[in-house]
């Protein structure tokens, strides 16, 4: 019974994700054909050189860091629907916490998949409404009054998450937290590369946890 779901999820996931890759390419292909405007190879390459080395690396890092947390179904879906660090990963962690299940178990995997699926559906609907009502919403969303709220969405999110997860695992959290505080305060310009530093934090946390575990402190 157990093997059937966990085996099938990879078959479904691979089919859906392969189709997604084709679908995502459909947009530039359709635009190029419809307007008879294929990109010039050199410009395309130049544009790609500006982003691909960084974002292909970030994508690879995210795949290896988030997949174990999100489980199979959650990862197949999360990597198609995007907005992982600011939305899907915190959403899945919060859901597993509420349901009292652990990542890496089948129950954890299912709760994470449900959370990511619901979050994706709600996000898609809200953005769709946003696009339809854009002219009405734009002055509100771009108003100076609300600007600080949107500027501070990540501190507002991670402050609350930190309380839950750090209070339960403060021994593991100390080393990566101190490292990141010192690093960002000494080199503020790194704020733009936070995605690249996620695995650095993870490696430090895992290293510190291993030492504490071996010494019997965990």
């Amino acid at each position: 019974m157990k093997s059937s779901y966990s085996e099938k999820i990879h078959v479904w996931g691979r089919i859906w994700c392969s189709l997604a890759l084709v679908m995502f390419t459909l947009y530039p292909v359709a635009a190029s054909i419809y307007y008879k405007a294929w990109p010039n190879g050199i410009s395309l390459l130049k544009g790609l050189i500006g982003v691909a080395p960084i974002f292909w690396t970030v994508g690879a890092i995210e795949a290896f860091t988030f997949a174990p947390m999100l489980g199979s179904g959650g990862s197949y879906l999360g990597f198609v629907t995007g907005n992982l660090t600011n939305l899907k990963v915190p959403c899945a962690l919060n859901a597993m916490e509420i349901a009292g299940v652990k990542p890496g178990t089948e129950e954890g995997e299912l709760i994470s998949t449900i959370a990511i699926a619901v979050s994706s559906i709600v996000t898609t609907l809200i953005i769709f409404l946003g696009v339809i009502l854009l002219s009405q919403l734009q002055p509100i969303l771009e108003s100076e009054l609300l600007a600080p709220a949107f500027d501070n969405i990540l501190p507002a999110l991670f402050g609350a998450l930190a309380v839950v997860f750090i209070s339960k695992n403060w021994k593991i959290a100390m080393a990566p937290l101190i490292f990141m505080l010192v690093l960002f305060i000494s080199v503020p310009s790194l704020a733009g590369s936070v995605s690249v530093l996620v695995p650095v934090g993870a490696i430090i946390a895992i290293g510190a946890a291993r030492i504490l575990y071996n010494k019997g402190y965990l």
Partner: peptide, 19 residues
Amino acid sequence: FLNALFLGMISAFLGMIFA
């Protein structure tokens, strides 16, 4: 190990807040 993975992620974002 799994807990350490997401504590690493949370640490990176908390650090960024102090940038």
